[in-house]
């Protein structure tokens, strides 16, 4: 019954400070929004139940600090992620330019077994601001970047208005589910009933 593990889908949200990572998560999980800027410290997650093809999954959504000085312990929580969400602010060019850094940093630290096909999703947030008049990153430009990185799905969102948030996370969940789990497959070579045995080896064999 390996399915117990697969009921949990782990998602990491990354992006520059102030692009709305926490707001997107809060809008999706709690249907709440606050205009006030509050920095995130370290990393924490909220969960939400999602239904995909009549099956119920728990989405574990990790919100992270965009400011580097609030990430003092490092990024060990990237481990085992099923999908990585890259967020930028359509009104801030720099936040878009940095997407590449976030993506590469994630691949480097999480080191998924198949980096080429690891599911990412890009969200261009804050499309509501100033009726879109202040945006500096065009949809075309963002889509072109996504296409160049192996057709990353792209959504334009407004955490404030709740625009596209549900759809984006539905897509995130679907893609997370498609990701092959790469939990280290572990088989003990000796059955040590008392536990605590240290003469262990990792097996490279298959799951069955």
């Amino acid at each position: 019954m390996a399915s117990r593990r697969r009921m949990l889908l782990k998602v990491i949200i990354l992006g520059d400070s102030g692009v709305g990572k926490t707001s997107l998560m809060n809008q999706y999980v709690n249907k709440k929004f606050s205009n006030q800027y509050k920095a995130t410290i370290g990393a924490d997650f909220l969960t939400k139940e999602v239904q995909i093809d009549d099956r119920l999954f728990t989405l574990q959504i990790w919100d992270t600090a965009g400011q580097e000085r609030f990430q003092s312990l490092g990024v060990a929580f990237y481990r085992g992620a099923d999908c990585c969400v890259l967020v930028y602010d359509v009104n801030v060019m720099k936040s878009f330019d940095n997407l590449n850094n976030w993506r590469e940093e994630f691949l480097l630290q999480a080191s998924p077994s198949d980096p080429e096909n690891f599911p990412f999703i890009v969200l261009g947030n804050k499309i509501d601001i100033d009726g879109g008049n202040s945006r500096v990153v065009s949809e075309k430009k963002a889509k072109a970047w996504c296409a160049s990185k192996g057709n990353i799905p792209y959504f334009e969102t407004s955490a404030k208005e709740g625009l596209n948030v549900e759809a984006a996370f539905q897509c995130i969940a679907m893609n997370a589910l498609k990701n092959e789990p790469e939990e280290d497959i572990y088989l003990p070579d000796t059955i040590d009933v008392a536990g605590g045995g240290r003469q262990l080896q990792r097996s490279s064999g298959c799951e069955c």
Binding site: Y186, L187, G195, G197, R198, L200
Partner: peptide
């Protein structure tokens, strides 16, 4: 390794 071992059981 200790965690994996016990997690297995």
């Amino acid at each position: 390794a200790g965690i994996q071992h016990n997690a297995f059981y």
